[in-house]
Write a protein that binds this DNA or RNA. Structure first.
Lengths: 346, 346
DNA sequence: GTTAGCACTCGAATATAAAGAGTGCTAACA
DNA sequence: TGTTAGCACTCTTTATATTCGAGTGCTAAC
């Protein structure tokens, strides 16, 4: 990703200036503005020539003849990539903790969404952590009374679930012990996908007359996984998009807000983000690059946070393409760190 | 509420016609339109005179001189009240069941919101049921292993919660039985507010050396209640408001959508609705009547549904004042019935 | 009490003009 | 050869009239 653009230093500086100016104003920027803005000491005419080149190369475009230029998706992409490289090393700084430690994760995540939205003025979303490759850590059956067994199931990430199972005739302590042994030796450390029909048949065979209980336990496991899979997504500041004229016409606003309400599309965004791992865990989708069709006129920035044991969640931010990438990337990194730390301290 | 308006039959008919026309078109309606629309066979001039009277009485108003008339809040109110009275008796009809029986209440309620939104083209919300006066129905402690006891807590409305409690030394079966007896005889049928410090002290005293367990159990109860108290609200079709020009300017859209996202205000709406019981459980707030300031330019219709045992939830619909009240009220009644039935069958 | 007729009002739509920002191109310059 | 001044041209934005029409209120006649 090291400067594969064929741009000399001057063109790069001009492009940079155009984008920065456009990020601020949201209006097409003209040659004269750049001529004064930069320290290049070039006349507007020269700038015009360079701009013409930049347009031909696809980094900027004109909304109409006789208007200034605005960055194209390709232009933004170059800008963001440069930004990422630059900022990589100065990640040491630390900002004060805005988030009071909330007692419940749900509250914490809601607050994260809210804080991020109000500090950036964009729309935000935060997903609850899900376990991509969820592993079974421990299973324990215990008799509650003569007709009921409680199954305690511990998943990776120390998520504990329990489930009551009805049985026809009581299990002796001996048999209970045996079943527990069987279940643990066979299933511990297994991911959900690994528990297939063959394995289930083998288990049932070994359980003998108690195969029915095994079946029920496995059902419970499946159930637990399923519950765990439907991740929650919290959103905040959706209406911030009204602050950006290019997104607040009915059509666009409709689409974006819909996506935020119906959640389905956000789920896809999260899935994609989690699967597409890179070194930083932060991704920037510009315009058409986004997995969510409804947001094709926006930029989307996502960050992954971890709880350990493979539990991962996503923070996302949605705004206009002329987003303050510098600020957003900084905020995301900070939040990502804070969340990581917070969860690893527990 | 029986015709306290001082309107003769003709004025009433004209008002009715104005409102119905306006509901359809959303445009101010003029005298000529009414003259042709109704079967009164009156000239536009006569209608004009009557309209003038109706305006003086506050039922309609002009957006500006030389425009047609639109209903005022007072006008809508009269219309809705008439509608309610009329339709009260024809509630017998039954429409086909649109909702597949969903396995989980959460899914069911989400679906309710969605169905209602798409069938009415307004924005909708559905709250999970909460127990206004929640009562404890049953508590049962069981040993899971030597260090853990599971507490099964059943609340009014058959809501079952369970909680694992750690103990230092195992309880004998005998002691366990005694504790169960103690807890059930003392607490059963109690509402949460009734479990005060005095009662807790008395319980602990009677539990003797196991007072610590009691303390933990009561903590668990408190916890369970608290979890239960923070009700969820599902929304759908928020962006439907863009279909109504009078609500889709940035300002209004902002406010309404905000209210739907931040949920806080909706919670207030639900609380108010649940407390203000009337015979049908359906309420109509027009304009300023609504408890939610952000929706002062809308009409809000709410319905209460019951699970029995005091568990109640709310369905709400938000749209422009020129809402199709007839359709909405019908839909709400139908849904209300279906939900009531569905939950009482279980 | 009802209606026809008419002058009047006012918003919405349409047309017209003027202003301004910005470009592309040419020609001159260092 | 790269840079710049100058100028004609384009296209949006804004302002300003102008027109159009729906609808009213009022008066006078039926």
């Amino acid at each position: 990703m090291v400067s594969e653009h064929g741009l000399n230093d001057r063109k790069l500086k001009i492009l940079h200036a155009i984008i920065r100016t456009y990020l601020e104003t949201g209006e097409p920027v003209g040659s004269r503005t750049i001529s004064k803005y930069t320290d290049l000491n070039l006349s507007s005419a020269t700038i015009r020539n360079e701009m013409s080149d930049l347009e031909e190369l696809g980094y900027i475009m004109q909304p109409h003849t006789s208007a200034g230029r605005i960055p194209s998706d390709k232009g933004y992409r170059l800008y963001v990539d440069m930004l990422m490289e630059e900022k990589e090393q100065e990640l040491t700084e630390r900002q004060e903790q805005m988030l009071e430690k909330a007692d419940k994760m749900e509250h914490l995540l809601k607050q994260v969404a809210k804080v991020l939205a109000s500090s950036t003025n964009y729309a935000t979303m935060v997903s609850t952590p899900v376990n991509n490759a969820n592993k079974l850590k421990f299973i324990q059956l215990s008799m509650v009374d003569d007709e009921q067994v409680i199954a305690v199931i511990v998943l990776g990430g120390n998520v504990i679930k329990n489930k009551i199972i009805r049985i026809d005739e009581p299990l002796s302590n001996e048999n209970l012990l045996k079943l527990n042994m069987l279940l643990n030796t066979t299933l511990n450390g297994m991911s959900i996908e690994e528990i297939n029909l063959g394995l289930i048949a083998r288990l049932k065979e070994q359980a003998g007359i108690h195969s029915e209980v095994i079946g029920n336990v496995l059902d419970a496991v499946a159930d637990v996984i399923q519950v765990d899979e439907d991740m929650q997504i919290y959103t905040s500041g959706t209406t911030n998009i009204f602050k950006y004229p290019e997104l607040s016409d009915k059509q666009s606003a409709q689409e974006i807000i819909s996506a935020f309400e119906e959640k389905q599309q956000l789920t896809e965004l999260v899935t994609q983000t989690l699967s597409q791992e890179d070194n930083t865990g932060i991704q920037v989708y510009i315009g058409d690059e986004t997995p969510v069709q409804n947001m094709k006129d926006c930029s989307v920035v996502t960050a992954t946070y971890e709880l350990g044991d493979g539990m991962k969640g996503t923070i996302g931010i949605v705004g206009p393409k002329r987003m303050d990438y510098e600020h957003v990337l900084k905020s995301m990194k900070r939040l990502q760190n804070e969340l990581d730390q917070m969860f690893h301290k527990n």
